[in-house]
Design a protein around this nucleic acid. Sequence first.
RNA 1: GUGAAUGUAGCUCAGUUGGUUAGAGCAUCAGAUUGUGGUUCUGAGGGUCGUGGGUUCGAGCCCCAUCUUUCACCCCA
Length: 452
Amino acid sequence: MKPSIPKGTRDFSPEEMVRRNFILQTIRTVYERYGFRQIETPAMENLSMLEGKYGEEGDKLLFRILNSGEVIDEIKAKKDNIRLSDISEKGLRYDLTVPFARYVVMHRNEITFPFRRYQMQPVWRADRPQKGRYREFYQCDADVIGSDSLLNETELVQIIADVFSKLNIGVSIKINNRKILSGIAEIIGEADKIIDITVAIDKLDKIGIDKVNEELKGKGVSDDAITKMQPLFSVKGTTDDRLNFLDNFLSASETGKKGIEEVRTLLSYLHSMSFKSDLIELDITLARGLNYYTGAIFEVKVSDARSTFTSSVLGGGRYDDLTGIFGLPDVSGVGISFGIDRIYDVMLEMNLFEQMHLNESSTKILLVNFGKKEEQYALTVLQKLRAAGVNSEIYPDAAKMKKQMSYADACKIPYVLLIGDEEMQSGKLTLKNMMSGEQNRLDVEELIKKLH
RNA sequence: GUGAAUGUAGCUCAGUUGGUUAGAGCAUCAGAUUGUGGUUCUGAGGGUCGUGGGUUCGAGCCCCAUCUUUCACCCCA
């Protein structure tokens, strides 16, 4: 039997986990600094909770779990009365936002609103794996639900900046507003085609104006509407310039004006909190996650000379009525989601992990095992070290010194303690620093003091 | 779901127009060295060449299928 793992999934070595945990811990610390509280939800949800929430594409990418029991035999017995639910009624979660909405509705009476929650768990998508795209990956979400205030958007943007600054990754935070996109569709007289329109203009950077126009035409957008849109594609200048342009372009759309107003408010909040304005950029072609966003839309791309990574490392936005489908209407929420697997890939590419020399081993000291008699003595020392809060381990076999030293070396354990006859008699133990090679004779108290 | 590339030891890769018993470096293990690792020297183990079929006297090499990984599209963290 040849061992294998499913397509798009990965094992993580101890070295990789140290690095992944560093990223996770950085995000967690920032989330908690801003008052977010952690929850977890099950890896699987009932399919009825997931289906239809992510659009047609999303439904195809759901992992469905085969029902337990003799499913095949039971289905055969049913002949033509087979229902989909006879085969599968559970699926793996596709993101953390929909399960969160479900959580909020189920626990509405225990939750104090506005609820600031964070969640860091794996999600699964049956996508074709490629660079930066996995079938099992972690999302790290923070959402505020039960508040319309744009202060929430402001704080989320600050969180984004804090995290990437701590990780030492240069990024560009792109913002947009669904209301601006709605306004555009309205102004050009194609309000019902908003999805097709935004999907097409989202590709502007990638495929160029001509191809975008071609795609719009293919989707049945009128020539007149396409002509009206052209000025949008050539907007240049600062965020203020763009907003001024939109003031004019969307002057006949109440929704559009509301969107501009929201963007201005967010920017002014950020300004008064002395946020570095060159990090953030209004991008009217940004149209992600359109299925449920209703206000702000966020996306972060790496913008760092040391990285070639082009996919987004964070997405987010506001959804006014996500819980409505679960029976709790009019609850507004806004959230963001870090993709730590991509962040890991970026940091690896930028050699950031090497520069920050993370502790590769949590063990601080290895006690060398010389034999039965010495082992007894070492055990009491080990006990004292651990009681004093020093991460310690003893080599379990009385193997050759070379082997034990090599073990410490390979595991990057910084100190080794030698306890032989001499040490037992004098009570002065030999401490070796594996980095410098230098050795000292210390009693247990001195040892604990030194390692603390 | 569409299109393309890839796969030889744990890892990175050689392998001639199809021709005997498939090689190297690194890693691993053992020894040189019975209380000293990271450098050195010596030796050893490890491959049904991704898998299954086919062509051939003969296949790591050619053909077909399938899986993995990678890249692009779609979509997305």
